[in-house]
C-alpha cells in the first residue's frame, strides 16, 4: 500500500477516547504494577501498534514532541499518521522528546539518551512508551514505593537484558529520570521513576 493513498483514521470519538486512554495511563502511573485495560480500535500503519498510537493521539501535540525508534522510523507512513493526527513534531534527537514510542523494546536505547529533567524541573523529562507483548502482575519484579500498598509485582517482555540495572539507576536519580509505560495488546502498566524495584 502506498503510504499516501490511505491515511488510517484517528479516534472515532476524539474527546472520550482520549480521556479513556489518559485515565488508563493515570491509573497505571498512580498504581505501579497494576494492569489497566486499554481498549482501542485504531489500525495504524505497522509496526506502530494500536496501543502506541492511542497513547500518542491522547497525549502528544505541538507542545509535546515524539521520538520514534528505528523500527517505527523505517516506515514513513508511521510518522505521517502521527503527524496528521497529533500535530506533534517528530524529532531525530531522543533528548528532545516528551514521549518516545518504542516498537522494539528489547533494543530500547539507553535511558540516558532521553530527557531526564533537571534538579529544579524534574518534570521536563521523557515518558517512554514500550510496545511489549507480555505483561503480568503475578510474577517478575517486586515493586514498592508511592502508589503501592505493601508490594506489587510486574513482568513485561521483551525488554533489554540489562533492564533491571537500568531501572535501578533510573530510580536512584530521583527526582530526575524517565517514566515508563508498557503497552501490551489491550492493556498497559507503568513504572514511574518513584518505584523501587527488587529482583529482576
Amino acid at each position: 500500500m502506498s503510504g499516501r493513498s490511505m491515511l488510517a483514521r484517528g479516534f472515532a470519538d476524539p474527546v472520550h477516547d482520549a480521556q479513556g486512554v489518559f485515565r488508563a495511563v493515570m491509573d497505571a502511573l498512580a498504581r505501579p504494577g497494576t494492569i489497566q485495560a486499554l481498549a482501542t480500535d485504531l489500525a495504524p500503519p505497522a509496526p506502530l501498534t494500536s496501543e502506541l498510537a492511542a497513547l500518542a493521539l491522547a497525549l502528544a501535540d505541538a507542545d509535546a514532541p515524539l521520538w520514534l525508534d528505528a523500527g517505527l522510523a523505517r516506515n514513513p507512513a508511521v510518522a505521517g499518521f502521527l503527524r496528521f493526527h497529533t500535530g506533534a513534531r517528530i524529532g531525530e534527537d531522543p533528548a528532545e522528546a516528551a514521549f518516545a514510542l518504542i516498537s522494539d523494546p528489547a533494543a530500547c536505547p539507553d535511558f540516558g539518551a532521553f530527557a531526564q529533567g533537571t534538579p529544579a524541573y524534574p518534570d521536563r523529562s521523557a515518558t517512554l512508551v514500550l510496545a511489549v507483548s507480555d505483561l503480568s502482575d503475578r510474577e517478575g519484579w517486586r515493586l514498592d514505593g508511592p502508589g503501592i500498598r505493601d508490594s506489587a509485582r510486574l513482568a513485561a517482555s521483551p525488554l533489554p537484558a540489562d533492564i533491571a540495572s537500568r531501572l535501578a539507576r533510573n530510580h536512584a536519580g530521583f527526582p530526575e529520570g524517565i517514566d515508563l509505560i508498557f503497552a501490551a495488546p489491550g492493556r498497559l502498566a507503568a513504572l514511574p521513576r518513584s518505584t523501587r524495584i527488587a529482583g529482576a
Binding site: 489518559f22 493515570m26 502511573l29 491522547a58 497525549l59 502528544a60 501535540d61 518534570d123 517514566d179
Partner: peptide, 28 residues
C-alpha cells in the same frame, strides 16, 4: 465536554502524569 478544549486538557493531563511520577513536586 468539561468546558476546556482538548489541547488544554492534554497539557494538563501531561502535567498530572509527571506530578504523579514525582510525588509532592509542583509541576508548572
Amino acid at each position: 465536554f468539561g468546558y476546556l478544549d482538548e489541547g488544554t486538557k492534554r497539557m494538563i493531563r501531561r502535567a498530572i502524569l509527571k506530578a504523579i511520577a514525582i510525588p509532592g513536586y509542583q509541576v508548572p
